[in-house]
Simulated assay, not measured.
Amino acid sequence: MKYLIYTIIALAVVFIGISVGKLDFQNLLEGDSMYALIVILASLCVIVLMSILLVSRTISKKQDS
């Protein structure tokens, strides 16, 4: 499960990298830039959620021991 979480985080980072390339800084809220911003925000949410999951699994393992 740990490797799956790290893979999901890595994919989110890749999506952020691809989406940054699609940004048009002159018109951030129009066309493809808007969709790229949505993907970046969603990917950041995934990274935060997966990090919380990793920390909670670590805490759970320490309490069981």
Rank of each mutant, 00 (worst) to 15 (best):
V20T: 09
A42F: 09
K62F: 07
L44M: 07
I47M: 08
I47S: 05
I16Q: 00
I18E: 01
K2Y: 12
S51E: 13
S33K: 13
V20F: 08
I9L: 06
L54H: 13
S65F: 12
S51L: 13
I9N: 10
G17C: 00
M34D: 07
I38V: 15
I52S: 12
V14A: 14
K2I: 10
I40A: 13
M34C: 00
A10T: 13
R57E: 11
S56T: 09
Y35N: 07
V39F: 04
S43P: 07
A12W: 01
S56N: 11
T7A: 15
I8A: 08
S33Y: 06
F15V: 10
D64V: 07
A10K: 09
R57Q: 14
L11P: 01
S43W: 04
I59C: 08
V48S: 14
M34R: 13
L23G: 10
L44Y: 13
L44T: 06
L49F: 11
I5S: 03
S60A: 15
V20Q: 02
I40K: 08
A36F: 06
L41S: 05
G21P: 00
I40M: 10
L4I: 14
I16Y: 02
Y3I: 03
Y3A: 11
I38D: 09
V14G: 03
I40C: 02
K61D: 15
V46R: 01
I8T: 09
M50F: 12
I5K: 00
A12E: 06
F25Y: 12
A42Y: 12
I38M: 15
S43T: 01
I40D: 04
N27D: 15
I18M: 09
V46H: 05
M1V: 07
S43R: 05
A42D: 01
I59H: 10
S19K: 03
G21E: 00
L28G: 01
D32I: 14
S33I: 12
I47C: 04
D64C: 02
Y35G: 11
L41N: 04
V39W: 00
Y6C: 04
I59V: 15
